[in-house]
């Protein structure tokens, strides 16, 4: 099958290990409709389906080299002036984002726009506390965004857990699971702080320092191990294109 060919051997090995762990714990996390199985097509032929890998590539991310000199500088300028934010509220802080599109703060004048799909956005705001359940969705979404991509961590919960530092269901440090470009501290930061964070992100992009997507690819195993440590029902491909 072609989908098995383009799977990295290491990735499939990791997936097998996590499935073995799940089985040892006596629990099965892959839903019945996502299991690898054979189905009969309308014309009578038998097709092998593996929904998790049919819809998503399990291929490992690779580092993408920046282009040369002035071209990359121009593209970085364009990226900085056109930040498309994914509209995905992950915690309490997402209520600070709607004021940004209203007349008082109006982030459009800085070239910051909301985008409804991860395929077209290049900035991801992780707002406030992040529960393990949300983190699973965040990882999927982050990996679906095209490189170069940037993460803004909003609120102190993303730095050290904030007031939920001792909770059993929220993570403490976001940068152990996905790479973070800009931290906006506070509980909650005001929309002005968010605008300042966008300004900082623009500076980083223009200076060519916002290459965290490559860092994610470089330290992929470390990030994946951290993610799998806490997302115990791992029922998705390791890299969700």
């Amino acid at each position: 099958m072609s989908e098995e060919k383009d799977m990295n051997p290491k990735v499939s090995e990791m997936l097998a290990r996590s499935e073995a762990n799940a089985k040892a714990a006596g629990k099965k996390f892959v839903r019945p409709e996502d299991e690898e199985r054979e189905v009969v097509a309308p014309d009578g032929s038998i097709i092998k389906v593996n929904p998790i890998y049919d819809y998503f590539s399990g291929a490992r991310p690779t580092e993408e080299k920046p282009r040369n000199g002035i071209v990359e500088k121009f593209l970085n300028w364009a990226r900085a002036e056109s930040i498309w934010v994914l509209g995905f509220g992950t915690g309490c802080g997402s209520i600070e984002i709607p004021p940004l599109v209203t007349p008082r703060f109006d982030m459009f004048r800085f070239g910051v726009q909301m985008r409804p799909t991860p395929r077209q956005s290049n900035a991801f705001i992780i707002s406030g506390y992040l529960s393990v359940k949300t983190l699973k969705r965040v990882i999927r979404t982050y990996e679906q965004m095209p490189s170069p991509k940037y993460v803004l961590a909003l609120g102190s919960c993303t730095i050290n857990g904030g007031m939920y530092y001792d909770s059993y269901s929220t993570i403490n440090r976001l940068d152990h699971y996905i790479p973070v470009d800009v931290y906006i501290a506070g509980c909650m930061p005001r929309p002005e702080a968010l605008l300042a964070g966008f300004g900082k992100l623009k500076e980083l992009i223009k200076a060519g320092k916002a290459e965290k997507a490559n860092e994610y690819a470089r330290n992929f195993d470390w990030y994946k191990a951290n993610q799998k440590k806490i997302v115990k029902d791992w029922n998705m491909p390791d890299y969700n294109w």
């Binding site: 050290n160 530092y165 001792d166 059993y168 993570i171 403490n172 806490i230």
Partner: peptide, 9 residues
């Protein structure tokens, strides 16, 4: 549990 599972700063 939180200290053992997540990464306390």
């Amino acid at each position: 549990y939180s200290e053992n599972t997540y990464f306390p700063r």
